[in-house]
Amino acid sequence: MEGSLCDLPAGLRGDYAAAGPDFTLPQDWAAYTPADHATWRTLYARQAALLPPHAATAYREGLARLDFTAGVPDFAEATARLRAATGWSLVAVPGLLPDDAFFAHLAARRFPVTRWIRRPEELDYIVEPDIFHDAFGHVPLLTQPDFARFLEAYGQLGDAAARIGALKPLARLYWHMVEFGLIREGGAIRAYGAGILSSSAETLHATTGAAARRLRFDLRRVLRSDYFIDHLQPTYFVIDDFSKLFGAMRDLPAQLAAARDAAPIPPGAAAPGDQPIP
Protein backbone atom coordinates (compact mmCIF):
# COMPACT_ATOMS: atom_id res chain seq x y z
CA MET A 1 0.00 0.00 0.00
CA GLU A 2 1.52 3.30 -1.03
CA GLY A 3 0.93 6.54 0.82
CA SER A 4 -0.97 9.35 -0.86
CA LEU A 5 -1.22 13.09 -0.40
CA CYS A 6 -4.96 12.51 -0.13
CA ASP A 7 -4.26 10.93 3.27
CA LEU A 8 -2.81 14.19 4.64
CA PRO A 9 -4.41 17.45 5.81
CA ALA A 10 -4.68 20.23 3.26
CA GLY A 11 -2.34 23.21 3.34
CA LEU A 12 0.82 21.54 4.65
CA ARG A 13 3.96 23.68 4.35
CA GLY A 14 6.46 21.13 2.99
CA ASP A 15 7.53 20.63 -0.63
CA TYR A 16 5.72 17.36 -1.29
CA ALA A 17 6.14 17.72 -5.07
CA ALA A 18 9.89 17.21 -4.66
CA ALA A 19 9.52 14.00 -2.64
CA GLY A 20 9.88 10.47 -3.97
CA PRO A 21 7.34 7.62 -3.68
CA ASP A 22 8.48 6.98 -0.11
CA PHE A 23 8.11 10.71 0.67
CA THR A 24 11.85 11.23 1.16
CA LEU A 25 13.89 13.97 -0.47
CA PRO A 26 17.44 15.32 -0.16
CA GLN A 27 18.08 17.34 2.96
CA ASP A 28 20.18 19.88 0.99
CA TRP A 29 21.94 21.07 4.14
CA ALA A 30 23.80 23.80 2.22
CA ALA A 31 20.48 25.53 1.46
CA TYR A 32 19.85 26.47 5.10
CA THR A 33 20.36 30.20 5.57
CA PRO A 34 22.21 31.99 8.39
CA ALA A 35 18.76 32.93 9.71
CA ASP A 36 17.75 29.26 9.76
CA HIS A 37 20.84 28.34 11.78
CA ALA A 38 20.23 31.29 14.11
CA THR A 39 16.66 30.11 14.72
CA TRP A 40 17.95 26.62 15.51
CA ARG A 41 20.55 27.97 17.96
CA THR A 42 17.94 30.13 19.70
CA LEU A 43 15.60 27.17 20.12
CA TYR A 44 18.43 24.87 21.15
CA ALA A 45 19.78 27.25 23.80
CA ARG A 46 16.36 27.78 25.31
CA GLN A 47 15.49 24.10 25.51
CA ALA A 48 18.97 22.93 26.53
CA ALA A 49 18.79 25.18 29.60
CA LEU A 50 15.78 23.20 30.81
CA LEU A 51 17.26 19.75 30.27
CA PRO A 52 19.41 19.04 33.38
CA PRO A 53 16.54 18.95 35.89
CA HIS A 54 13.76 17.88 33.52
CA ALA A 55 15.02 15.53 30.76
CA ALA A 56 15.72 11.81 30.99
CA THR A 57 19.34 10.77 31.32
CA ALA A 58 19.22 8.69 28.12
CA TYR A 59 17.91 11.67 26.18
CA ARG A 60 20.61 14.03 27.50
CA GLU A 61 23.34 11.50 26.77
CA GLY A 62 22.00 11.00 23.25
CA LEU A 63 21.86 14.73 22.58
CA ALA A 64 25.47 15.14 23.74
CA ARG A 65 26.54 12.26 21.51
CA LEU A 66 24.91 13.83 18.46
CA ASP A 67 26.24 17.35 19.12
CA PHE A 68 23.50 19.54 17.61
CA THR A 69 24.77 22.78 19.14
CA ALA A 70 26.19 24.63 16.12
CA GLY A 71 23.08 24.94 13.97
CA VAL A 72 20.66 22.92 11.84
CA PRO A 73 22.05 19.36 11.98
CA ASP A 74 23.41 17.55 8.96
CA PHE A 75 21.47 14.28 8.65
CA ALA A 76 24.43 12.43 7.15
CA GLU A 77 26.59 13.22 10.18
CA ALA A 78 23.80 12.33 12.62
CA THR A 79 23.11 9.09 10.76
CA ALA A 80 26.73 7.99 11.12
CA ARG A 81 26.48 8.38 14.90
CA LEU A 82 23.06 6.70 15.10
CA ARG A 83 24.14 3.71 13.04
CA ALA A 84 27.06 3.18 15.38
CA ALA A 85 24.73 3.28 18.39
CA THR A 86 21.57 1.42 17.32
CA GLY A 87 21.56 0.96 13.54
CA TRP A 88 19.08 3.77 12.84
CA SER A 89 19.36 6.41 10.12
CA LEU A 90 17.63 9.71 9.34
CA VAL A 91 15.73 10.51 6.15
CA ALA A 92 14.56 13.99 5.14
CA VAL A 93 10.84 14.39 4.42
CA PRO A 94 8.58 17.36 3.56
CA GLY A 95 6.61 17.07 6.81
CA LEU A 96 3.77 14.87 7.99
CA LEU A 97 3.55 11.49 6.25
CA PRO A 98 0.69 9.11 5.44
CA ASP A 99 0.46 6.32 8.01
CA ASP A 100 1.77 3.53 5.79
CA ALA A 101 4.84 5.50 4.67
CA PHE A 102 5.59 6.46 8.27
CA PHE A 103 5.29 2.88 9.51
CA ALA A 104 7.49 1.57 6.69
CA HIS A 105 10.30 3.95 7.60
CA LEU A 106 10.19 3.06 11.29
CA ALA A 107 10.08 -0.68 10.54
CA ALA A 108 13.30 -0.27 8.54
CA ARG A 109 14.98 1.78 11.30
CA ARG A 110 14.71 5.00 9.31
CA PHE A 111 13.43 8.00 11.21
CA PRO A 112 11.72 10.66 9.03
CA VAL A 113 12.74 14.22 9.91
CA THR A 114 11.01 17.27 8.47
CA ARG A 115 13.42 19.27 6.31
CA TRP A 116 12.23 22.84 6.97
CA ILE A 117 12.57 24.94 10.13
CA ARG A 118 9.99 27.23 11.69
CA ARG A 119 10.01 30.99 11.27
CA PRO A 120 11.30 33.27 14.07
CA GLU A 121 7.76 34.33 14.98
CA GLU A 122 6.89 30.66 15.61
CA LEU A 123 9.45 30.00 18.32
CA ASP A 124 6.83 29.32 20.98
CA TYR A 125 4.31 27.31 18.99
CA ILE A 126 4.02 25.72 15.57
CA VAL A 127 1.12 23.65 14.23
CA GLU A 128 3.18 21.28 12.07
CA PRO A 129 6.28 19.44 13.27
CA ASP A 130 9.47 21.00 11.87
CA ILE A 131 13.11 19.97 11.90
CA PHE A 132 13.61 21.25 15.44
CA HIS A 133 10.76 19.18 16.82
CA ASP A 134 11.85 16.08 14.93
CA ALA A 135 15.63 16.29 15.30
CA PHE A 136 15.99 17.86 18.74
CA GLY A 137 12.91 16.18 20.18
CA HIS A 138 13.03 12.67 18.74
CA VAL A 139 16.47 11.81 17.47
CA PRO A 140 18.57 11.81 20.69
CA LEU A 141 16.56 8.94 22.18
CA LEU A 142 17.22 6.80 19.11
CA THR A 143 20.64 6.19 20.67
CA GLN A 144 18.92 4.25 23.51
CA PRO A 145 18.78 0.56 22.47
CA ASP A 146 15.48 -0.45 24.11
CA PHE A 147 13.67 2.63 22.86
CA ALA A 148 15.12 2.11 19.38
CA ARG A 149 13.82 -1.49 19.37
CA PHE A 150 10.43 -0.31 20.61
CA LEU A 151 10.09 2.19 17.77
CA GLU A 152 11.09 -0.40 15.17
CA ALA A 153 8.52 -2.87 16.54
CA TYR A 154 5.91 -0.11 16.51
CA GLY A 155 6.49 0.48 12.80
CA GLN A 156 6.27 -3.24 12.06
CA LEU A 157 2.75 -3.38 13.56
CA GLY A 158 1.36 -0.60 11.39
CA ASP A 159 0.03 -2.78 8.56
CA ALA A 160 -1.63 -5.21 10.96
CA ALA A 161 -3.31 -2.37 12.84
CA ALA A 162 -4.60 -0.89 9.58
CA ARG A 163 -6.06 -4.23 8.48
CA ILE A 164 -8.19 -4.52 11.63
CA GLY A 165 -9.14 -0.83 11.82
CA ALA A 166 -7.04 -0.16 14.91
CA LEU A 167 -4.90 2.75 13.78
CA LYS A 168 -6.48 5.09 16.33
CA PRO A 169 -5.34 3.14 19.40
CA LEU A 170 -1.93 2.66 17.78
CA ALA A 171 -1.69 6.43 17.28
CA ARG A 172 -2.54 6.94 20.96
CA LEU A 173 0.43 4.80 21.94
CA TYR A 174 2.76 6.93 19.82
CA TRP A 175 1.29 10.16 21.13
CA HIS A 176 1.48 9.29 24.81
CA MET A 177 4.71 7.27 24.88
CA VAL A 178 6.83 8.75 22.06
CA GLU A 179 5.66 12.36 21.92
CA PHE A 180 4.72 12.85 25.57
CA GLY A 181 6.36 10.05 27.55
CA LEU A 182 7.81 10.44 31.05
CA ILE A 183 10.21 8.22 32.98
CA ARG A 184 10.91 7.95 36.70
CA GLU A 185 14.59 8.19 37.61
CA GLY A 186 15.68 7.98 41.23
CA GLY A 187 12.24 9.04 42.40
CA ALA A 188 12.11 12.08 40.11
CA ILE A 189 9.94 12.48 37.01
CA ARG A 190 11.90 13.18 33.83
CA ALA A 191 10.71 13.76 30.27
CA TYR A 192 11.82 11.87 27.17
CA GLY A 193 8.93 12.59 24.78
CA ALA A 194 9.65 14.85 21.80
CA GLY A 195 6.47 16.88 22.21
CA ILE A 196 7.57 17.74 25.72
CA LEU A 197 11.26 18.39 25.18
CA SER A 198 10.81 20.57 22.09
CA SER A 199 8.46 22.90 24.04
CA SER A 200 9.53 24.94 27.06
CA ALA A 201 5.97 25.27 28.36
CA GLU A 202 5.25 21.55 28.00
CA THR A 203 8.55 20.61 29.65
CA LEU A 204 7.72 22.50 32.83
CA HIS A 205 4.05 21.49 32.84
CA ALA A 206 4.73 17.79 32.29
CA THR A 207 7.47 17.33 34.85
CA THR A 208 6.58 19.76 37.64
CA GLY A 209 3.18 21.30 36.86
CA ALA A 210 0.61 20.89 39.63
CA ALA A 211 -2.27 20.55 37.16
CA ALA A 212 -0.78 17.60 35.25
CA ARG A 213 -1.94 14.06 36.03
CA ARG A 214 0.91 11.54 35.90
CA LEU A 215 -0.11 7.90 35.76
CA ARG A 216 1.87 4.69 35.88
CA PHE A 217 2.20 3.26 32.37
CA ASP A 218 -0.56 0.78 31.55
CA LEU A 219 -0.79 -0.37 27.93
CA ARG A 220 -4.57 -0.92 27.96
CA ARG A 221 -5.17 2.52 29.45
CA VAL A 222 -2.85 4.24 26.97
CA LEU A 223 -4.50 2.61 23.96
CA ARG A 224 -7.89 4.01 25.02
CA SER A 225 -6.74 7.48 26.07
CA ASP A 226 -7.63 10.36 23.76
CA TYR A 227 -5.50 13.50 23.76
CA PHE A 228 -5.34 17.18 22.85
CA ILE A 229 -3.29 18.16 19.81
CA ASP A 230 -3.19 21.91 20.47
CA HIS A 231 -3.11 22.28 24.27
CA LEU A 232 -0.86 21.23 27.10
CA GLN A 233 -1.60 17.61 27.90
CA PRO A 234 -3.71 16.98 31.01
CA THR A 235 -2.48 13.38 31.48
CA TYR A 236 0.95 11.78 31.07
CA PHE A 237 2.10 8.18 31.46
CA VAL A 238 5.27 7.28 33.33
CA ILE A 239 7.55 4.29 32.73
CA ASP A 240 10.26 3.03 35.09
CA ASP A 241 12.59 1.74 32.39
CA PHE A 242 12.74 1.76 28.59
CA SER A 243 12.92 -2.03 28.58
CA LYS A 244 9.37 -2.10 30.00
CA LEU A 245 8.17 -0.02 27.05
CA PHE A 246 9.78 -2.41 24.56
CA GLY A 247 8.45 -5.39 26.55
CA ALA A 248 4.89 -4.08 26.24
CA MET A 249 5.09 -4.61 22.48
CA ARG A 250 4.63 -8.35 23.06
CA ASP A 251 1.09 -7.69 24.26
CA LEU A 252 0.23 -4.97 21.76
CA PRO A 253 -1.18 -7.11 18.90
CA ALA A 254 -3.68 -8.73 21.25
CA GLN A 255 -4.63 -5.42 22.84
CA LEU A 256 -5.26 -3.40 19.68
CA ALA A 257 -8.59 -5.00 18.76
CA ALA A 258 -9.86 -4.67 22.34
CA ALA A 259 -8.89 -1.00 22.42
CA ARG A 260 -10.53 -0.44 19.03
CA ASP A 261 -13.84 -1.75 20.38
CA ALA A 262 -13.68 -0.04 23.78
CA ALA A 263 -15.03 3.42 24.57
CA PRO A 264 -12.24 6.02 24.45
CA ILE A 265 -11.24 7.82 27.64
CA PRO A 266 -11.51 11.62 27.17
CA PRO A 267 -8.40 13.76 27.71
CA GLY A 268 -7.84 14.37 31.39
CA ALA A 269 -10.55 11.98 32.56
CA ALA A 270 -9.98 9.39 35.30
CA ALA A 271 -10.51 5.68 34.71
CA PRO A 272 -10.79 2.61 36.96
CA GLY A 273 -7.38 1.20 37.78
CA ASP A 274 -5.48 4.48 37.34
CA GLN A 275 -2.29 4.59 39.40
CA PRO A 276 -1.29 8.22 39.98
CA ILE A 277 2.37 8.99 40.57
CA PRO A 278 2.99 11.89 43.00
Score class of each variant (00 low, 15 high):
5 L>N: 14
6 C>V: 04
7 D>G: 07
9 P>D: 05
14 G>Y: 00
25 L>A: 04
27 Q>V: 04
27 Q>A: 02
28 D>S: 05
37 H>M: 11
39 T>I: 12
41 R>F: 00
44 Y>R: 12
45 A>L: 04
46 R>A: 07
58 A>C: 13
61 E>L: 11
65 R>P: 07
67 D>L: 01
70 A>P: 07
73 P>R: 03
75 F>M: 11
76 A>D: 13
77 E>H: 08
78 A>K: 01
79 T>K: 03
84 A>Q: 15
89 S>C: 11
90 L>R: 07
90 L>C: 14
96 L>I: 12
98 P>A: 04
101 A>L: 01
101 A>K: 00
103 F>C: 15
111 F>Y: 14
112 P>Q: 02
113 V>K: 01
117 I>D: 05
132 F>P: 07
138 H>P: 15
138 H>F: 11
141 L>M: 15
150 F>E: 12
156 Q>N: 07
156 Q>H: 06
159 D>V: 08
162 A>G: 14
168 K>N: 11
176 H>A: 09
176 H>F: 12
177 M>K: 09
178 V>D: 10
178 V>I: 13
179 E>H: 03
181 G>C: 05
189 I>R: 04
190 R>H: 07
190 R>L: 09
193 G>V: 06
194 A>H: 01
194 A>N: 03
194 A>L: 02
201 A>Y: 00
205 H>I: 09
207 T>K: 09
208 T>V: 13
216 R>G: 10
225 S>T: 15
226 D>Y: 06
230 D>C: 01
233 Q>D: 09
233 Q>S: 12
240 D>W: 00
243 S>I: 05
246 F>K: 15
251 D>V: 00
261 D>Y: 01
263 A>C: 04
272 P>D: 05
273 G>A: 02
278 P>R: 14
